[in-house]
Simulated scan of single mutants.
Amino acid sequence: MEWKMMAGSPEGLTLLDVAQIAGAAGAVVAAVTTVVIFWLRSRWDRQVQRSQRTFEFIDEFFSDKFTKHRSSINTTREKVALGKANMEEIARGYVVGHSEGHYSGDEMGDGMNEHMHMDMMLYYLQRLSFAISKKLADEKELRDVLGYQLEWDRKFLLDLTASCRKICVENNEIEPPFCVRVEAVLEKLSSNRSRPAV
């Protein structure tokens, strides 16, 4: 009697009805399970790719080739501190239409001058900023590993972007896009952000 009420028909549930219900329920469970597994796998793959990109940025920063860029920037920074180079002359090399007479610096023994090495650092920082903003690299891991290292050149690079901006404002020019990205990544990766307040 109970079966007849549940089925809603005078004949009640037949074996065929039970099989159809079980089949439909099984199909729903299989579909949901497939979606969940696909979602978990996709999430796992993104995390693996993110970790790989983070490692690649760190590996590049500490590579022999990139160490030459960092060393060159250190040389340029020291020249500015000693008055042997002028930040505005350096910045002119990055503003369209105003690069005449810009500071290119010395050839560093690898076929590149100081300006070219600076280009490579600025390009790296722009790529790093993009990867962090799109969550393609782990910001915390990068800050933990690179933050202290970037502090050496942080003020110099921020002075460079400020000088570029100043030249643009004075000459009614468009600001180079790298300024915003470099400032953003230096702020995000500042080693001061990871220190607890005392």
Rank of each mutant, 00 (worst) to 15 (best):
E141H: 14
K135Q: 13
L128K: 09
L125S: 07
R181V: 08
C168P: 01
V145M: 08
K140G: 00
S133Y: 11
F156L: 00
F130S: 13
I132P: 02
K140A: 14
V169K: 07
I174W: 10
R154D: 10
K155A: 10
L146W: 05
L142Q: 03
I132W: 07
R143N: 07
Q126I: 14
E141R: 15
I174K: 15
R127G: 09
C168I: 00
K134W: 13
P177I: 09
A184V: 12
F130D: 14
D144E: 13
G147I: 04
E141S: 09
S129Q: 07
A162R: 14
F130E: 14
K134N: 13
V182L: 00
L157A: 06
R154N: 09
E141P: 13
E175A: 11
P177A: 04
D159K: 07
R127N: 15
A137L: 01
V145Y: 03
R143V: 03
W152F: 14
L128S: 04
L125A: 03
E183D: 15
E170R: 08
I132L: 09
I167W: 03
Q149G: 12
C164V: 01
L136T: 09
D159V: 00
Q126V: 15
V182R: 02
F178Y: 04
R143C: 08
K140T: 10
D138Q: 08
L146A: 05
V182D: 01
K134V: 12
N172W: 10
D153S: 15
S129Y: 01
P176Y: 01
F156Y: 07
C168S: 06
C179Y: 02
R181S: 14
A184W: 15
R143H: 03
A137E: 05
D144W: 12
L158R: 03
Q126D: 12
R154V: 03
F156I: 01
A184F: 11
L150A: 05
K135G: 10
D138V: 05
C179G: 00
K140I: 09
C164P: 07
N172L: 11
K166T: 09
R181D: 15
L128F: 00
K155Y: 11
D153C: 13
C168R: 06
E151W: 07
E151H: 11
L157V: 02
V182M: 00
K135Y: 12
G147Y: 01
L142Y: 09
E175Y: 04
T161D: 04
L157G: 04
C168M: 01
C168H: 06
Q149I: 10
N171F: 06
V169I: 11
A137M: 02
I174A: 12
F130L: 15
I174C: 12
R154C: 06
E139Q: 12
L160Y: 00
E141I: 11
R127W: 07
L146G: 01
R181H: 13
K134Y: 15
V180D: 15
E170Q: 08
S129V: 05
L146T: 01
E170M: 05
A162G: 08
V180E: 12
E170D: 10
C164A: 13
L158E: 08
F178A: 00
Q126L: 13
E151T: 13
